[in-house]
Design a binder for these strands. Structure first.
Lengths: 199, 199
DNA sequence: GCTGGTTGACTGACCAGTCAATCGATCACT
DNA sequence: AGTGATCGATTGACTGGTCAGTCAACCAGC
């Protein structure tokens, strides 16, 4: 019982923040909203985090490092290059399926807000693009991908397509049943690898 | 000289707002920043616009309606379906080349901020996706595009890829010379239509 | 002297972050 | 077991600063 309470309350605050940020957006949430949602006193938020931003920081970094690890693991695997891209797309889609609110916060408040808040995290975000580009470049080396498309360019298109799909789910512009998620995983890769035109 | 001054100052304010929003982001700019940049008194901003948001509103709506018109014109043209997509990609890329600051504001503060401010404009944004989807659907009808990819899905991927490229330019993650812009136009379409894998 | 553009000082609300006070678990020493 | 000292966790009232939006006055052309 020595360390249990501290960890508990900290997590409680982080999880409350996910819900509140997802509901109202970062700018529109007051620190008191987070505290209320967590069932905790206002000041306690500042006991664990030095500012409102640091709460969002923490949420982003925790999850993004998982994404980076997943991409790099896919890259190191023995699978085909196409399967590697499928693994990446699958990881992102599953992240959304598993915790839509957290992914909403990360995408809306960080990844797609590179101007304000996301600026701090540009290097980490960029690392994801670079790792994907590495997969594409390897594919070009082996001849499984065409060489006339710059890997960075391909990587941005690929990631952009996925993120746009998540945005579509987040804002309910496209259907989001479980089967939609599963289809999406293979369809993004099919679109990017095979193209829209019939072979 | 009856109507010249009013139009003048209004535009002056709008153009100043583009620069300031692009530089600092919407939330970080004070109305006084806009007024200063425009060389105009604070109160005048409120003479022409009912709030800070309405300034951004106006900037977005002006440009987005051009985009919608461009997409719909492409759709109505006699070109091949692929050429239609090229026209859309070209229009967006050229918009960025012509006025990067305005496009930065629109993308960062509206299109990719669907949570906070962009929420108001979701219907207009959606109209763009729908129009692109219509082009894809027509292509499927004619057999120039494969039928196993949902048009809405394809449209989101296509638009997402383009927007990600713009983001890359905006945040200087990818090179942005004039030739890069030109190549991008055809390469996005090549990626989406032909795919990454060699034919 | 009227009308509509223009000015900028002012106010009211809001909220991030501070801090002094309280609580309660653990431990040292009887 | 009992006492009380210690220290981190927890509380929430309060403050300081910021700004969006208002408004009464001013000005220029007709």
């Amino acid at each position: 019982m020595a360390k249990a309470p501290p960890i508990d309350k900290r997590r409680q605050i982080l999880e409350a923040a996910i819900r509140v940020f997802a509901r109202q957006g970062f700018h529109a949430t007051r620190v008191s909203d987070i505290a209320d949602e967590a069932g905790v006193a206002y000041g306690l938020v500042y006991h664990y985090f030095k500012s409102k931003e640091e709460v969002l920081n923490e949420l982003f970094s925790e999850r993004w490092s998982l994404l980076l690890a997943a991409i790099e693991e896919a890259d190191r695997s023995e699978a085909t290059d196409r399967a590697k891209l499928e693994a990446v797309a699958g990881f992102i889609v599953d992240s959304y399926r598993h915790d839509p609110e957290l992914m909403k916060v990360i995408i809306v408040e960080v990844t797609r807000a590179a101007n304000s808040f996301g600026r701090t995290h540009l290097p980490e975000i960029r690392r994801a693009y670079d790792s994907i580009a590495k997969i594409v470049a390897a594919g070009q080396e082996e001849g499984t991908f065409r060489r006339d498309i710059d890997p960075t360019f391909a990587s941005m298109s690929f990631y952009g397509a996925i993120e746009q799909l998540l945005s579509g789910w987040i804002f309910e512009l496209i259907p989001n049943s479980d089967t939609d998620f599963d289809q999406a995983k293979t369809l993004v890769v099919a679109t990017i690898c095979d193209g829209l035109e019939p072979r």
